[in-house]
Design a protein around this nucleic acid. Sequence first.
DNA 1: ATAACATGTAACCTAATAGTTACATATGAC
DNA 2: GTCATATGTAACTATTAGGTTACATGTTAT
Lengths: 107, 107
Amino acid sequence: MDDVFQALSHSARRKILDIVGKMPGCNVNDVAKYFSMSRIAVMKHLGILEKANLLISQKSGRSRELYFNVVPIQMIYDRWTTEYSQFWASKLTDLKFQTETKKKKKK
Amino acid sequence: MDDVFQALSHSARRKILDIVGKMPGCNVNDVAKYFSMSRIAVMKHLGILEKANLLISQKSGRSRELYFNVVPIQMIYDRWTTEYSQFWASKLTDLKFQTETKKKKKK
DNA sequence: ATAACATGTAACCTAATAGTTACATATGAC
DNA sequence: GTCATATGTAACTATTAGGTTACATGTTAT
């Protein structure tokens, strides 16, 4: 679980997930074009995502096809909707917490 | 958003959230008792959680009362249920897209 | 065969994490 | 006031993260 959260903690990696999610089967260079950092840096991010099982890759010829895997996210979703379900109902009605956090909300 | 995922990426911090969630208003030492690491290390974790807005603290006398805040988690939940909703139902997409996207990279 | 392309590996640098110990400050009990 | 308690701050260390450039390997096209 650490790996998944760690992988998702970097905006570049979440962006990669969005890109691959919209372009299933795209390769490393396709993804790297969206970033200003070097291709090697992108590959390291891909490696982290793959280690967290959020990406699946498959070699095809000289290129590597990338696929987004939603299962680990589903796992986290399940944890939150079960273990934290008690807080969802209670805190949603308490508007004090929401207004406090509304300003500092960013992407 | 980086802060929230980063905060959740360490199992000790997720454990802290569980502890504080079950003991609202508990203080730093109460939490530290659950860990073998030093109190200062625990305080650093608390600081990270507080910076991510997952914890709210309030001084009361000589101790600090801790509360779990579910709002940032709800924010993430919203993102996943909206942006990734396409993947939830059917995570297997046909392979038509990948051939199309690869041709477009002609330049 | 050779050139262009896609990916992989190695070595290196800087900054942030995660932890420690030692000391300082503030408060409640007596 | 004195002392135990609860928290806070400072300084240090080791490891990991995130990035770079240079070079190597494998594959497709001409």
